[in-house]
Nucleic acid binder design. Structure first.
Length: 230
DNA sequence: GCGACAG
DNA sequence: ATCTTGTCGC
């Protein structure tokens, strides 16, 4: 499921993008939300290359409490190329999320979802592989666009593909007044509204959703421990 | 031809 | 992703 060549990945992305699924909808009780992150050596500039060492982490939370946390080390499958992020970190993400003992209700990651040249960003792809609803959270969209929302906590605006009246694939979300909004992406089995709702329940006074913040922190700590031992 | 382009 | 100084706020 994780190709190593661009042409193969493009093929897989097209196949996954066509799959029809039942939308996932959060229940009444607080959802079990997990988030994963991959970081690279400090000083590594540019797109990187295949074989780059990488540290991955996953953190599962529910109602503000941490349920599980795991880390692993591995290597990048390829250099980074817009639209082909899965080639670089797809397998690593699958490995680290697979370390969870209990399956989460939804998974957050730093990548786009339906906002992709073939409607199959890493959030969609990883969700299909793991059979888990996913939501993407990034600093900016890949191929979608939309005006920013009002500078008020919780304000959001549509991110659409290609045209002002095109398909809505995500939303800009102001997680904190006075700071740049984050791009929230509909992923596997999630719609823009669902994605925004999930992200909002995991934001604790900061711009970044708590599970994502913690997974990034954990991955970086694993890197620090391996990079500068005693 | 040139610039843009999730991480 | 990673590299960066200062700055504002609690």
């Amino acid at each position: 499921m994780w190709p190593t060549r661009p042409e193969q990945l493009v093929e897989v992305q097209r196949t996954i993008a066509m799959r029809v699924t039942e939308p996932w909808v959060p229940g009444d009780s607080p959802p079990r939300v997990a988030a994963c992150w991959v970081c690279f050596p400090r000083g590594l500039a540019g797109p990187g290359a295949a074989g780059d060492q990488a540290w991955a982490a996953v953190v599962a939370m529910q109602g503000g409490r941490v349920l599980e946390r795991h880390t692993t080390v591995g290597r990048a499958g390829a250099a980074y190329t817009p639209g082909l992020l899965a080639l670089r970190v797809g397998a690593l993400f699958e490995t680290v999320v697979g370390m969870l003992v209990e399956r989460p209700d939804v998974l957050l990651l730093d990548g786009t979802g339906r906002d992709h040249p073939r409607r199959c960003g890493l959030a969609v792809h990883l969700g299909a592989v793991l059979d888990l609803p996913t939501v993407g959270v990034t600093h900016r969209p890949l191929v979608a666009s939309g005006a920013w929302p009002a500078d008020e906590d919780g304000a959001s605006s549509a991110l659409r593909i290609e045209r002002p009246d095109g398909e809505e694939v995500g939303r800009w979300l102001r997680t904190r007044a006075g700071t740049r909004p984050v791009a929230v992406h509909a992923g596997w089995r999630t719609h823009p509204a669902t994605a925004v709702a999930v992200v909002r329940t995991t934001v604790r006074g900061r711009r970044t959703p708590e599970p994502l913040r913690r997974s990034r922190q954990l991955a970086r700590r694993a890197r620090a421990a391996a990079t500068q031992p005693t």
